[in-house]
Design a protein around this nucleic acid. Structure first.
Lengths: 358, 358
DNA sequence: CTGTTAGCGCCTTCAG
DNA sequence: CTGAAGGCGCTAACAG
């Protein structure tokens, strides 16, 4: 009962020396027993482990890391908003891989604010993360490149690096949207509306490109009357969708470039006169209950968990290499998308968000 | 350039002494400048801070915590599965409050496995968390009580403590289900089916109790033919729902006790003959796109983020008190629920999962 | 096989 | 106002 006043002893106030003293051995012996290191007799080890168990002693990983200088088996995960299912799924993937490597995940939310991202990155570094998986908040990733150059690997998720040589994992934004648009064209549509994010955002740009590409293939010109690119909540999107379909020569189909846009469009389509012309829908991102809607809907589906897994795997790859950062050729992975046609026939939902019920 | 070989220097390999030497002062001066402590001249402070900025030096919070013995401003969050929107929303709330207190969140997924929960708790303690917010995986929380007694506060979320005196934050499972069931009864239903979790689970038990209570109020007996309590994926639930409504004297309404059950029931109802008798639905947990479904659906809505916020607030409350653990009278908070009737009229969705679009 | 010495990066304490 | 000594809990590196 030496250091039991209030010291940082992890959870119990017990220190290695307490265990050692109680056994009449040196702290080193306890250390060796605990870490399963050689240079200790089997009998002694048993004795130590028994005492450790009896006392409920737990080593202090922070002190260990400080002294050994080794990795802390801790990675940081920066997302803009965990409340968005895409990011929470991504987090699941990151965590799965981290645990496999014996590491833990420290969370940071940026709220899509680059300044906040800066601060969180600094804080996580001060807390000794070995590496970072980042869903970037801004367009310029130079500061993340600097972090990497200083020795902490960084992997980007859902966005390609800009102004820095970083690994990244992307969704096939272009291909997915192109395929969805092709599908609409196959269905005979020529006037196809687009509802998506501004071009300044990666997905906004790439998905629009897929749309324009498919139109071009089919000899159709992009008609700006049918294009709305905005950053807003579902209400704003719904209004934009209504605007699109209520104009004189309305599109006969709508391509929505993300989940929020799809929901907004669904609302706009659903709450109008039943004698209005039917509008077919195709959207990026899967939609819960899409198959129950009884609407002609095609979605671009992919696995957000896989994005997290891939990003974390890239990170631990770098961490495993000797001098992970020097002469590092950035890698870029793309997660594939598949077209799911809910209009054709009901099909079982993916179990993505299933998990144990509550 | 002293300690620059590979040491644990947080991100840059720089240590306080490096900064101090470069300035011809002692490390203590740097420390004081950095922490804004008194006992240092304004001029000196400026000089130090300038050098710190120029060098990009960042203090090592791990070493700081080791020496000062103070809190690490780090809390652990244990959930069963972040992929479930309920838990990710909860995590959002926890993180919001943590950040407000200058703390960070370390994540742990238990996969609803009590053994795994044990391990994760130990690991987080070794990593110096100041406290824990736990969505418990098992029924017995004695081990969490032990953790608390050893000095690390624990707050439970979404489940009341069993076998330990812990703070907790609950949803009004009973009241919400009771209200939903009352609504169905108001609508004239007498044969009301129940689809929920087994009684062994807290929500399974409480929500069934709400159902039974409302029936009892109305002088209706619980009819086991109309009750299905299972733990399964959406497919299994859908099958159970179909079983319920396809029997000889089927219920005219269904009460589903959670989101997964609601989705399963919606599927079962949607994919059957159009001449089948109409079945009204009421369910616990909100459902995305519920208003677009054009089905008579009432949901018990609440704010999962608020659960996380409350839980974290309770935790930091304890952390703030002197000797947080001793003589601690456990507190129990209940987050209210509201009934939302999507059948009556379309209404804007809550912005719960909105966040920045992608 | 075991113990001793030294020190990770920082901060508390006490001298100057 | 500043610096020196000592140590948080643990573990390399070297003795024995």
């Amino acid at each position: 009962m030496s250091s039991s006043r209030s010291g940082p002893g992890p959870e119990t106030g017990l220190t290695m020396r307490d265990v050692a003293e109680r056994l009449g051995v040196s702290p080193m012996t306890v250390s060796r027993a605990l870490r399963g290191r050689p240079g200790i007799g089997a009998a002694t080890r048993e004795r130590v482990l028994a005492e450790v168990a009896a006392l409920g002693y737990r080593p202090n990983k922070l002190a260990r890391g400080l002294r050994s200088g080794g990795p802390h088996e801790l990675i940081g995960l920066l997302v803009t908003n965990l409340g968005n299912p895409f990011y929470s799924q991504l987090a699941v993937g990151v965590e799965q891989v981290a645990v496999r490597y014996g590491a833990r995940v420290m969370l940071g939310s940026t709220g899509a604010d680059p300044d906040s991202e800066h601060e969180v990155v600094d804080d996580l570094l001060e807390r000794g993360v070995d590496g970072l998986v980042v869903v970037p908040a801004g367009h310029d990733h130079a500061h993340l490149g600097a972090v990497q150059l200083r020795g902490t690997p960084v992997v980007l998720a859902a966005s390609p690096p800009m102004g820095a040589d970083l690994d990244c994992v992307l969704v096939d934004d272009f291909g997915g949207t192109r395929d969805a648009c092709r599908r609409l064209i196959e269905h005979g549509h020529r006037r196809i509306g687009f509802l998506g994010l501004p071009a300044a955002l990666w997905t906004g740009s790439e998905r629009f490109r897929g749309y324009a590409f498919a139109l071009d293939e089919a000899g159709i010109e992009v008609d700006e009357r049918y294009v709305r690119r905005l950053r807003g909540d579902v209400e704003a999107i719904e209004a934009a969708a209504r605007e699109l379909i209520d104009q004189p020569e309305p599109p006969t189909a709508l391509l929505t470039a993300n989940n929020r846009n799809t929901v907004g469009a669904l609302r706009a389509l659903r709450f109008r006169d039943t004698d209005a012309p039917r509008v077919e829908l195709a959207g990026f991102d899967d939609v819960e209950l899409a198959d129950v809607l009884h609407l002609p809907l095609t979605v671009v589906s992919y696995d957000p968990i896989e994005i997290g897994r891939s990003a974390a795997t890239l990170l631990f790859d770098q961490l495993a290499g000797t001098d992970p950062v020097a002469q590092h050729r950035p890698r870029r992975l793309t997660v594939p998308t598949t077209l799911v046609d809910y209009a054709v026939q009901p099909r079982p939902r993916t179990a993505a968000t299933a998990g144990p019920a509550r």
